[in-house]
Design a binder for these strands. Structure first.
Length: 275
DNA sequence: CGTATGCCCTGCGCGC
DNA sequence: TGCGCGCAGGGCATAC
């Protein structure tokens, strides 16, 4: 499940392969992953364009193209973008193939088909709605402890739901919300507004350090995540609570609990994160 | 408007 | 052994 560290790792792994390359041809094995515009117009507009860069915003990958176009990709649950030699056998669930001027292919595979592409012109029509209203990046100077404190105060929901909301801060998903809450000793079912100033400050620091460590480990490979060169992330071993239900907490030895919060499987230590 | 819920989809693990 | 069900969840549509 790619979250910010995994998407950032994909971005970095694609960096040597994409900028400066021309897209000679796009082959659609399954057109459902083309979200905007129609598959026909997508193919017509993207053919011959040159990839100028590869950027990230939250969990979105942004690829500015020549001619004022922008290709936007979202991997959702199971999407993978990999660069391979054309003779490489097609992996299952390969839906889109971009033939590049380097001779290599950028392939999009997606078992659960939740992810996909938007191709946007200079008028910005067709942008994913969520990208337009996305909150600040966790490492942007705008994401301050005071900002987090104030936003949490305004919410009436659980702290878990608030942090999963991409309008509040961009890029956190189920794994790193659980990890950041553990690192700051906050129970996931606490009311967002009940979080004290000191706790919010601690949470701010935890969010940044948890994400930073995960990026340094090139993300968490839980089941389906691999980077653009098909490598696993190494962060799984570092997880303190996520996917550790029934195992002892590394801090106090209490059994890690898993329960449903905000509609998501949620992991926490009942002793280190009291309600 | 803010919040909650269900849906999209496929593969896997579990229980019978 | 085999089948069917539930679960996994990011973002969006819909309902309240």
């Amino acid at each position: 499940m790619p979250e910010l560290p995994e998407v950032e790792t994909v971005r970095r792994s694609l960096l040597p392969h994409l900028p400066g390359r021309q897209i000679h041809e796009v082959i659609l094995h399954k057109s459902g992953q083309i979200r905007y515009p129609s598959p026909e117009r997508f193919l017509q507009q993207i053919g011959g364009a040159t990839i100028e860069a590869i950027d990230r915003r939250g969990k979105y990958l942004l690829l500015p193209l020549s001619g004022g176009l922008q290709l936007i990709a979202h991997l959702r649950m199971s999407g993978r973008l990999i660069v391979v030699e054309p003779q490489e056998p097609l992996a299952p669930h390969t839906h889109v193939i971009f033939r590049l001027s380097s001779g290599k292919e950028l392939r999009y595979q997606d078992q659960r088909t939740f992810g996909g592409f938007h191709l946007i012109g200079p008028d910005k029509v067709g942008m994913p709605a969520g990208l337009l209203t996305l909150g600040p990046e966790p490492f942007d100077p705008a994401f301050t402890p005071a900002y987090l404190r104030q936003k949490l105060q305004e919410r009436r929901t659980t702290i878990k739901a608030a942090l999963l909301d991409q309008h509040l801060v961009a890029g956190l998903g189920n794994i790193y919300v659980d990890e950041a809450l553990f690192a700051s000793g906050i129970h996931p079912e606490r009311r967002s507004g009940s979080v004290t100033e000191a706790e919010a400050d601690r949470l701010h620091a935890s969010i940044q350090s948890v994400l930073q460590k995960a990026i340094a480990n090139r993300g968490t490979t839980f089941s389906l995540y691999f980077d653009g060169e098909n490598r696993r992330g190494e962060h799984y071993e570092e997880l303190q609570v996520f996917d550790r239900a029934g195992q002892p907490c590394g801090t106090c030895g209490t059994e890690i609990i898993k329960r449903r919060v905000a509609g998501r499987g949620t992991h926490y230590c009942p002793r280190c994160q009291p309600l």
